[in-house]
Nucleic acid binder design. Structure first.
Lengths: 206, 206
DNA sequence: ACCTGAACACCGTTCAAGT
DNA sequence: ACCTGAACACCGTTCAAGT
């Protein structure tokens, strides 16, 4: 709070103010004008710091999704690493205050996040392209899951209660349903990868 | 073109005009004012026809995603029905001009779409709750896939070429990669459901 | 009743002074 | 150079006349 001045404004401050606004008042409250006001500055200087609004939102997404997953996955079996990695990514993406930011996340953030899993898969006997494909499959599944999950839970909170379709409503889910669904999907993916992967049979003396 | 008058305006006309605008100029061009202008009307009467902008977008999504899948899936083995249904849904969702509308689709549209698959699963020996869970799993996977796919392909079209990470970029995919990924995911889901489902062994005289 | 024009309270972005 | 106030071209939504 030493500098109430306006001249020494960093791109970092702008992104931070935007994130504060996001957390306090939601995605739609993040506007160039309101971010500027929060910084006690006119909107103009923001444009020289962060580009335009689109760029600012990209920067917010980059910040919120840096260090997506722990850099190390230990030395468990690759299948366990997949599970661990997918759950960590799921947890992390779910913590983002608005799923519209998840879809904005730029490629490189996911490339970074992929590295530990790809290492684990390579250690498990996957070739590089096999590891990349497997990682991509799991990553897309997790990201897709999070977006559907948040849209689904958001609709549930919104008004119109459906009259509880007998037999279960395929889309009306609560948090527990969603968690179970995630685990089931993950189990199937791991089983599929295991079936496709030439298991290291030498361990069993074959 | 008989009635250039403004009084007899139906909700249907508003939704249709919004869809035309969407197709011609994209999601961001759809505004209450521009839809009204296209109808030769002030913005005011729109509010009595379709509610507010949010409601209008919901109505657009409902219209674009009515009849999501063919009502009949034939009498193939349930596993083939899952594949057929998932591919039809994928194709259909991909044809929506903006994936932001896919996430707006209301529950009931998906409930409708679920019916033929649930019937096929029941015919294949699934109990009602099992069928609902299986359908939900596949549906979430497909919807999630489409949203990630469209974000991913959109980013590719946008500016910054990445310097082609050696070993393959886990997120930088083209249409062929995406299609292969979809088929792989679908294959794993079907295999997983098959493994979990108590196969009708009586057919084999067991 | 139901429309229109005008208004209100916002946007993103840029221009023209000001220091 | 780099800020601010004002402006421009839009929004969604509502109000106050008008017919």
């Amino acid at each position: 709070m030493i500098s109430l001045a306006a001249a020494d404004l960093e791109a970092d401050d702008v992104v931070r103010a935007a994130i504060e606004l996001l957390n306090e008042e939601g995605f739609d409250a993040v506007s160039m004008r309101r971010v500027a006001a929060r910084l006690g500055v006119s909107p103009v200087p923001l444009y020289s710091r962060v580009g335009n609004k689109d760029d600012l939102l990209d920067a917010v997404a980059d910040r919120l999704l840096a260090d997506l997953v722990p850099a190390e996955l230990g030395h468990a079996h690759w299948a366990d690493c997949v599970g661990q990695w997918a759950r960590a990514l799921h947890e992390r993406l779910r913590s983002v205050p608005d799923s519209r930011l998840v879809l904005r996340t730029r490629r490189w953030a996911f490339v970074d996040a992929s590295r530990p899993l790809i290492d684990a898969l390579r250690a498990g006997g996957f070739t590089e392209p096999e590891a990349v494909r497997a990682c991509r499959l799991v990553m897309w599944s997790v990201i897709g899951f999070v977006t559907v999950e948040s849209a689904s839970l958001a609709e549930r909170r919104g008004g119109h209660r459906s009259p509880s379709v007998p037999g279960g409503d395929p889309a009306g889910v609560d948090q527990a349903d969603a968690d179970a669904l995630f685990e089931q999907q993950l189990r199937y993916l791991i089983a599929g990868l295991t079936a496709d992967h030439p298991t290291d049979l030498s361990k069993f003396g074959i």
